[in-house]
Every structure is written in C-alpha cells, then in structure tokens.
Design a protein around this nucleic acid. Structure first.
Length: 449
DNA sequence: CAAGATTGTCATTGT
DNA sequence: GCACAATGACAATCT
C-alpha cells in the first residue's frame, strides 16, 4: 500500500509501505512506517547533508516549528531597531501571523540551522526569483573631497632689511634669531615637499652667494617650474644687496622684463612708491598669509627672518629639500658659523616636519572619508539583509501554512484495519530514529521505544 | 570677544 | 647612531 499525495507544493508526500496499524509503539494499537519524501527541497542549507529528495518527518515538522530567527546585528555601527520597509502580507488562508510575535530564541532549534547557512541564501532565490541579491549600494556614495590643491607660494623674496622693522612681524629686530621658542609671527607658505612642486628659491645673499656650482641645480627640482603661473609681484618683490628678485628667487629681468621695479615700502603703513595698482590712499598691508595665492609672497616666516639675519647663503628650499648628502655637501662648501649651522639644521628639521604634519593631517582626513564610505556600505548591507530576512519569514509562513494543509491530507490517507480514518484530534504523526513514521496516540508517549 | 579651524612646531617613536 | 617619516600635543593665528 502506497499512497502519494501531490499538490501544488514544491514537494509531495509519498507513503512508503502499508500502514501497519498493529505495529504498536508506546502501547498504541497502531503505527505507521511511512517514509515521506519531498519532490524538491524547500529550504536550502537546512539539511545540507541530506538527499535532495528525502525529507524526514522531523525535518518537515521542524519547519513548522520555525519561528523568527535572528539576523546578527552586532556590526560596528549602531544597532538600531530595524523598521521593515515593506508592509506585511498575508499568505494562504491559515490566518497565521506572518511575523511571529515571540522574539527569536537562542535554543538549538532548526532555526539555528538556518542561521548557520543564512549566508547561503542565494539558493533561497528559488523561492524568491525577484529577490535582489546584490549588496551594492548606490545611494550612499560619499563624494570624496578633492584634495585641495596645495598652494605653493614661492618662498619669500629677499626683503630689504629696512622692512624688517615694520609692523607686527617686524619689531625693529630679527626676533628669536636662535630661539625655537619664539612666537610664530606668520604662517609660512607650505614648504615644497618631494611630492609638491618646488617653487622658487630663497636666497639671503647676493646671487653669487650660491651658484650652480654649489649644487647640481640642473637636476635640482627647486629650479624647475614647469607650471609657472604668472602672478602679480607688483608689491611683493624686494631687493637684497642690490639685486632684485621675484619672490620665487628669480631675477626680475629674467622673467618679467616689462615689469617695473618698485620700491618696497619702508614701513607697513607706507604705501609703496609708484605702486601702479595700489592707490596711495590705501595703506599698504601685508598680504594675509592664509590667503596667499600661488606665486604670491607674504610676510617672512620666522625661519626666513632668521636666515636673513644670519645671512644664510642658500635658499630655504634647498636647506629643506636637498638630499642629505647634497645638503651636507652644500654646508661643506660654505664656512658657516655655529649659529648658522644650528639655524640651518633647525630650518631643515622644521621644514621637513611641517611637510610631514601636512601629509599626516591630509591622511587623517582621507581616512575619515574612507571610513565614512565603509560605514555607508555596511549600513546598506544591513538594510539588505533585513529585507532578506523579512522575505524569508514571509515564505516560511507560507510553507508552514501549506504544510499544515498537507499534514491533514496525509493524515486523511491513513486508515486503520477496519478502513476507518484516524482522527487528528486523537493521533499525531511521529518519527522514530530510523525514519519510520508512526501514528502516536496523543494520550500516550513513546517512552516505551 | 568666544569658539572652532588652521597651521606650525616640538617631542616622541618607529623604520 | 643618524636621518627621516609619522603622529600626538600644544600654541599661535585666523575665521
């Protein structure tokens, strides 16, 4: 005797062997050895070791036991309550709540088995052909800020010593010639780094003070300006020891022969003589160090003023950017006093550290942007998993409902020896360890097995 | 004028 | 041991 029940379900039950009403278990008067097979798997990963075609009764029963299962939500981001974005739908006619009211349980139930294989829910798409399985997140892209172009104003032009006594930055003397603890009286422009274009060269002595013979300037980046930007030097040039320089350290007549030389104001409050673009009525002002543009000069930095005061015979950018061997060679070619040597080494140390600090801060900001992007991606993945869980629960409810119907149908196929059907109220289907199914009277137990 | 942002500098550590 | 990069901390300055 074998009866097969086919339905619209993705699987069917087949009764293997006759119902042996006299095979008593637990003192019952009847039992069943029905082997139920499923024509298709219902849940992937639920029982990976099992044949695609065989479902034990316990497994099927386990499906009916499935409640909500947890989705781990212990990510690094905040574990806020998940708000389903889709309204609940009812399936079938069982009146079952699609979402169980009872919270997820931690007991080793079949639900836990689902947890283990949850990541493999790709197969679950067979029940959800329209399920989106991508985790991409297109709506949370972070516009990574474009790195601000590092302004590279030229190092300071030679400043007429008369100007050293002017204004806030020039108190009539070179402040803190030797001391590192002096006030920072001006924001120096970013010192050129190996990664940045080196613009200009600062010389504190007449140009003859360091010739191309000092250092191999043919390969020295400090002498290359591939992206020279014309700038207005009308009030920022200065002269030193009879030589006029642009702020970038280049001779005026070499690069701007048409520009008129102008006298640097003697004081900050004195308008530059014959200043073409600055009306006399407008007091001369030092350019704001924070708003200096590429190629613009500004107030001397502390180290620059020190270098001027000690007559360091080579530009700051060389001091800072030359390789150590070239730097030492440069020092060896000049007879420097101890104070000069100390200052030069301090300038080199501070200059390199300043660039390092700038790079460090830039990296820090980039890391923040990167982490924000990752955070958005994780949030998108969390939302996607939550939607998957919701769909899973809905399909589970459908299966439970349909299985209940099938259960009743199977039960209806069973007859006792007199051909009478068994009552669902009195009997339930149970499965033994060998997979056999039995009808168990609800008032008895299987302890006697 | 206060508060936050920016920048330079120093001290320290690691390479 | 030296040179240097990286970085936290602090202070000066700017917005």
């Amino acid at each position: 005797m074998c009866s097969t029940i086919n339905s619209a379900l993705p699987f069917s039950f087949r009764c293997e062997g006759p119902v042996n009403a006299n095979s008593l278990h637990g003192g019952l008067s009847m039992s069943s050895t029905h082997r139920f097979s499923a024509g298709g798997r219902v849940w992937p990963n639920y029982s990976p070791q099992q044949s695609e075609m065989d479902w034990t009764w316990q497994e099927l029963m386990a499906i009916t036991e499935l409640q909500e299962f947890e989705v781990p939500n212990d990510g690094p981001f905040e574990a806020g309550p998940y708000h389903p974005m889709e309204p609940m739908e009812h399936y079938g006619s069982c009146g079952t709540n699609l979402v169980e009211a009872n919270p997820p349980t931690a007991h080793p139930s079949p639900a836990a088995a689902f947890e283990v294989g949850y990541a493999d829910l790709i197969s679950y798409q067979r029940l959800n052909p329209n399920m989106e399985m991508h985790y991409g997140y297109g709506g949370c892209q972070v516009n990574k800020p474009q790195p601000t172009a590092t302004l590279q104003p030229p190092l300071m032009s030679l400043i007429d010593p008369i100007n050293q006594g002017a204004g806030k930055h020039c108190n009539g003397h070179i402040d803190d010639i030797e001391s590192d603890s002096g006030l920072s009286l001006g924001s120096s422009p970013p010192i050129a780094s190996p990664a940045n274009e080196v613009i200009g060269a600062l010389a504190y002595l007449p140009h003859e003070g360091y010739t191309d013979g000092d250092v191999d300037c043919t390969v020295d980046p400090c002498h290359t300006r591939p992206n020279h930007i014309p700038v207005n030097y009308s009030h920022t040039f200065s002269s030193y020891a009879g030589h006029s320089y642009f702020p970038n350290g280049q001779h005026l007549h070499q690069h701007a022969p048409s520009m008129k030389l102008q006298q640097f104001p003697a004081t900050l409050h004195e308008p530059p003589a014959n200043h073409a673009s600055t009306p006399r009525s407008v007091p001369f002002q030092l350019p704001n160090p924070k708003t200096k543009q590429v190629g613009m000069s500004g107030p001397l930095t502390r180290d620059e003023r020190r270098a001027v005061a000690l007559q360091i015979p080579f530009p700051l950018d060389k001091i800072i950017n030359l390789p150590v061997d070239d730097f030492n060679e440069l020092l060896s070619r000049h007879a420097l006093s101890d104070a000069q040597l100390t200052l030069v080494r301090d300038i080199r140390r501070r200059g390199k550290n300043k660039v390092a600090a700038q790079n460090c801060r830039k990296r820090k900001l980039e890391n923040i942007v990167h982490l924000e992007h990752e955070l958005n991606q994780l949030r998108a993945r969390r939302d996607h998993l939550a939607r998957e869980r919701l769909e899973f629960q809905q399909n589970l409810t459908v299966l439970k409902c349909r299985f209940s119907e099938l259960y009743a149908k199977v039960f209806a196929q069973l007859r006792d020896e007199q051909g009478h059907p068994y009552s669902l109220e009195d009997y339930s289907l149970q499965q033994s360890n060998d997979g056999s199914l039995y009808l168990l009277h609800r008032n008895s137990s299987m302890d006697g097995d």
